[in-house]
Amino acid sequence: MELPLISDEQVEILLSDLLEHYGYDFTGYSKASLKRRVIRLYSLDKIPGFAEFRYKIINDNVYFKRFVEQITVNVTEMFRDPVFFKTLRDVVLPRLGTYPFIRIWLAGCSTGEEAYSIAILLKELNLLHKSLIYATDLNPSVLEKAGQGMFQLSYMKQYSENYILSGGKNDFSSYYTAKYSLAKFNDELRGKMIFSTHNLVSDHSFNEFQLILCRNVLIYFDRDLQHKVLELFDDSLEDLGYLALGTKETIDFSRISRKYKRLQSEKIWRKTN
């Protein structure tokens, strides 16, 4: 398969189109990854030429949504990096359990697998009743899917293994009902989630939280945008609250880092006052 070539300049043109016509700003995204996604979609949809591609994105609202959904990465799983979830279970959430009410922001939640994982942890720690998970993403379509709480039944074996490695003691299948090829997660979990669109690039802080999770999102941003988003998180986090990032992400380079103390070996930092 020969890769169709879209030049860096053409990617820039598409990004300024998106900004001008839809207000979506991707100019702070890492270029290599973004370009790869754009080329992938261009080839997947068998677009005959760059002019058509551009025209479709500007004039076809349905295609524009597809474009944004496809150039952003929405790959996720339940209890990904089980050791991380074990630290949430054993250290972070029990400490937050002393609060009368727990507000958690899951930024870049994609199709919701992490939101349900966290809800399961809260349920097992007997904290779910006094918790709210605000799960946000810039793609409305992934949020719609997240809200349904239905995932491929075929993934459940892997998720169950992750769950057990994260310290889960229950029968993982007790959290969902199998419906044909899908696993529908219990409404009790869904009841403590609020799904809403939020664009980390352009939207502001909307609440104060005790825990913010944003895993494998910052890797797609350039350093300037990472700085900006980390400041947004800092503005949205209470003193003594926790910030959790992806395995390969860090706050070390950023201006907010002096206010934070890292927890053990995980990518979790606690805000000091």
């Binding site: 270029k31 290599a32 990854s33 790869r36 990465v73 790959v75 890797i219 390969k248």
Partner: peptide
């Protein structure tokens, strides 16, 4: 690193990608 794609940027830095 395991479980991430490794990309090279025009400014000769690395990016990681979990696609």
């Amino acid at each position: 690193p395991s479980d991430y794609h490794l990309l090279v940027e025009l400014n000769r830095t690395f990016s990681l990608d979990y696609s």
